[in-house]
Amino acid sequence: MKILGIETSCDETAASLLEISAIGKIKILSSVVSSQIKTHQQYGGIVPEVAARKHVQNIIPVIAKSIKTKSNFSKIDLIAVTSRPGLITSLQIGVQTAKTLAYLWRVPLIGINHLEAHIYSNWLSNDKLQKLGRKIFPAVCLLVSGGHTELILMKNFGQYELLGQTRDDAVGEAFDKVAKLLNLGYPGGPVIERYAKTGQNDKIEFPRPMIKAKNFDFSFSGLKTAVRYYLEQIKTNGKLNQKMIQDICSAFQKAVVEVLTYKTIKAATEFKAKTVLLGGGVSANKLLRSNLKKQAQKLDIACYYPKFKYTQDNAVMIALAGYFNRKKANLQQNWQTLTSNPNLKLTSKK
């Protein structure tokens, strides 16, 4: 079957055409992402109104490019669109476009949870997961991005339990805010990783927030504050130089990665997970990937992460989540009833 995926929940307008064979083999026919990073950089962050306006401009060209030929569009079997969570003004553009297409083409439509799609980005990147099927469960998934820090227990396809989340700032937000404190620009993740590479990670000791807490929650606002205090201390004693910035980035990154790894492995052990999965923008961080994999392997737990291009928001993962949820798609109603929802969580504690 052919699935068109559409994503507009945050700063990327994206569309993808996916073909999945009867035996579940995934073939990516197209993946178009119109990155808006350039527009956002000048504001030091994502500006939603600008984002929404850009989505309006981009959505039709992006979808048209993803479909490529007329013969493709006549064979689309399902439309999958991100309907939650995200910026409501941005989400609506994708959802309204998808509804219009579903109505015109008489194709079933399904709303996708963005977080679930990030989990499925692992299936796009690892052939082994496609072969293993249900054998990978239970799996513990760590979702880390600008707006999310969630530890989720995946018991089966479509069956999730939220184990923990951040109590204040998200990990990606911490990267962005620390980069802002250091005047390194936006987005903070890649730039801090780059500086960290040449820094020494043992020169400064930043806290490991909530590492001892008896739950799976996180806290990152204290790290941002610790970096701030450290910077003030430097400024009263002299001037901040390149080497110091590298050391700060390195120590900060180490603190973040240690907390994330520790809690994920703890959850995997407690819930006897066979697999650990990573997802979201911050899962592009190389230290996080290698550290988590190393610790998981020590315990004989398999560890997967998405290819770099699928850590960022994209529509391939939305289309694939559509495939896994295809039984819920409805030709009769969905284009009439589907609405966007800014806050809906993937799961709640039972």
């Binding site: 600008g146 707006g147 999310h148 989340q165 700032d169 998200a170 802002k180």
Partner: peptide, 28 residues
């Protein structure tokens, strides 16, 4: 950044009897 605005709102929420976790709305 880090001056305690979000911490303050967490207190407000508690004072109003809200049980949910109040985390940073920077992204959403």
């Amino acid at each position: 950044l880090g001056s305690g605005k979000t911490v303050f709102v967490q207190g407000l929420a508690k004072g109003l009897g809200i049980k949910e976790k109040v985390n940073s709305p920077t992204f959403v």
